[in-house]
Computed example of a mutant assay.
Amino acid sequence: MRVLIADDHDLLRDTLVMFLQSQGGMETASVGTFGEACARIEADAPYDLVLLDYNMPGMNGLNGLRTAIAMGGGQRVALISGEATRQIAEDALEAGAAGFVPKSLPAKSLINAVKFMAMGEQYAPIEFMTAVDDVTSNPLAEKLTARELQVLKGLTEGKSNKEIARDLDVLEPTVKLHVKTLYRKIGAANRTQAAMIAREAGLY
């Protein structure tokens, strides 16, 4: 089984490669931009699955997905994202994607999803596709996704990224990405400041 992973976050990409290769019988290649992914699709032997990060350089969202699907005789292409909405996931599936994989997915589930898609099936986590957005009147909470709120709660409790990852059953690099994103969204420079902002807003 041959899989190409295209994601601009080095740590997350390398972790995905490590997890997939540890399964045995799985050959992986990885790149950091959409342009590099296209070059590999054209030059390499056919892949069973191409996994594209929705927000990486050159991707241009669903246009990149459609371009990749049309290349190399129409190989199977799936999206992976830490921030994409359910609507984007639905549009991707409608455009012919092999699936949609949130970066918040537990490692075991992610590996199973990749195998599932590479074997010809279409995948999207039911809990993500059917989730009902929480109705909240807190202005700060409205800026963050449900997973970012969980990570922020861990920060207010003084937990490390490793501890938060264990609590949420996700990879540590995934937590680091969420921390970086929520810093930007709430205007925090570090963990202490993020915790203070959350407490002042009455979140935790």
Rank of each mutant, 00 (worst) to 15 (best):
F116E: 02
I197L: 15
D10H: 13
R86P: 04
V31D: 03
K180H: 14
Q150D: 07
T15L: 14
P139M: 07
R66P: 04
G24R: 13
F19N: 15
N112Q: 12
V179W: 07
L140V: 15
A201Q: 13
F34A: 14
V77C: 05
R191Q: 12
K159H: 09
A124W: 01
R199P: 07
L49A: 04
E42P: 06
D44R: 06
G99N: 02
L155T: 09
G24I: 00
A39G: 08
G35K: 07
L144R: 13
G74E: 01
N55L: 14
N63V: 14
E200S: 13
F116W: 10
L93W: 13
Y54L: 09
E157F: 01
G158N: 08
A146L: 13
K103S: 07
Y183V: 00
I69H: 06
I186E: 01
E94M: 08
V151K: 11
R166H: 14
Q23W: 04
V170C: 14
A201D: 06
M196D: 15
G64W: 03
A189T: 11
L168S: 09
M59A: 07
L155E: 06
D169P: 15
R199D: 00
L171M: 14
T15I: 12
K153W: 00
A118Q: 02
C38D: 00
R86F: 04
G158K: 10
T85Q: 10
H178V: 00
A37R: 10
V114G: 01
T156R: 13
G61A: 01
T33Y: 09
H178L: 14
A45H: 11
N190Y: 03
G99A: 03
T67M: 10
K153I: 00
R191D: 08
G202T: 06
S30V: 00
Q193G: 08
L4C: 06
V175T: 10
L152D: 00
P125A: 00
P106A: 04
T156Y: 06
V50I: 11
D48I: 04
G24N: 09
D91H: 09
L20E: 00
A124L: 03
Q75H: 12
A98C: 05
E172P: 15
A97M: 06
I5R: 14
K176H: 14
I111C: 03
G24A: 05
A98W: 00
I5H: 08
P139Y: 08
N138K: 08
D7M: 12
A189Q: 12
G64R: 07
G120F: 04
F100Y: 12
L52I: 02
E148I: 02
R66T: 04
D14C: 11
E42A: 13
V50A: 02
D53C: 09
L11A: 14
A78C: 04
V170Y: 10
Q122E: 01
